[in-house]
Nucleic acid binder design. Structure first.
Lengths: 140, 140
DNA sequence: CAAATTTCAGTAAAACTGACATTT
DNA sequence: CAAATGTCAGTTTTACTGAAATTT
């Protein structure tokens, strides 16, 4: 056998598993009216309690531009507030509203349920090993 | 701890690992002037020797529409040919040209090299286990 | 008529790029 | 002046939807 085709490559298997996982999570989030970006921002913000937009970008892996757009939409929906930092006039401090915190936990629950659906085929020990390896791949 | 945030979820780790893997593969393919769709179609076609567009869609996991667009571009680049099937006038039979076969193997080599870069952090046995689990997740 | 194949027109999410004004 | 932050305008890739024409 010379070079394997893409269908036998680990990168392909990884991509396919992620596509399937993403499809399921995305469908569940859409079912409650949320996008993936919104979920990430709200969930990260709930965990941090308060964060600047730049911090949210680092926490969520989103580009600053995409953070700005998402945060603006969430502000319009009264799920978070933004205010200039007194310490640093460049920075916008973002805080969840109580509706935002409720929403965040609702989305965390939705995502939690998806884990079973996606990783159900694996044994608990395979699952642990998979999580370990995946964490290593994305720079732990 | 109530619900974990998205950053602790297996689906997130899977997504992040896939994003990183995709980024690397995509950059390497772009470096030789190919898109992911083109690589998948050419590689699948080279392995199958000949296929209809619908078959290519099933092999590559691409939507029929995206197969059509990709195949038309590859035809324009003289990397494959299309002809009506004599047996079934609905069907377009796609064959690689010799330039297409060379191109396909070039891209397979590029992708093969990426495997090391992406999965290098893992031991060989972790790698085998990961591939097994990933295959299970995408419906093996 | 039902089903499959191909094509057309379009949307949407995700990731990303380059530029700019403001502030530190 | 360099660096960081937020904003604006835009592209690319990938995935997908709905509809139409053709043929089986």
């Amino acid at each position: 056998m010379p070079q394997p085709t893409f269908r036998e490559l680990p990168t392909w298997l990884l991509s396919q598993a992620a596509v399937r996982s993403h499809r399921i999570l995305h469908a569940r989030l859409a079912g409650v009216g949320a996008s993936g970006y919104e979920y990430r921002v709200l969930s990260a913000l709930d965990a941090a309690s308060t964060a600047t937009q730049a911090e949210l970008g680092r926490l969520t892996g989103l580009d600053r531009r995409d953070v700005a757009v998402t945060v603006q939409a969430l502000e319009k929906a009264a799920l978070l507030t933004r205010s200039r930092s007194p310490d640093d006039a460049r920075v916008l401090v973002v805080k969840p509203t109580s509706a935002g915190r409720r929403r965040s936990r609702e989305l965390d629950r939705v995502a939690h349920d998806v884990q079973e659906e996606v990783f159900g085929p694996l044994t608990a020990s395979d699952r642990r090993q998979l999580v370990r390896s995946l964490a290593q791949l994305s720079g732990s």
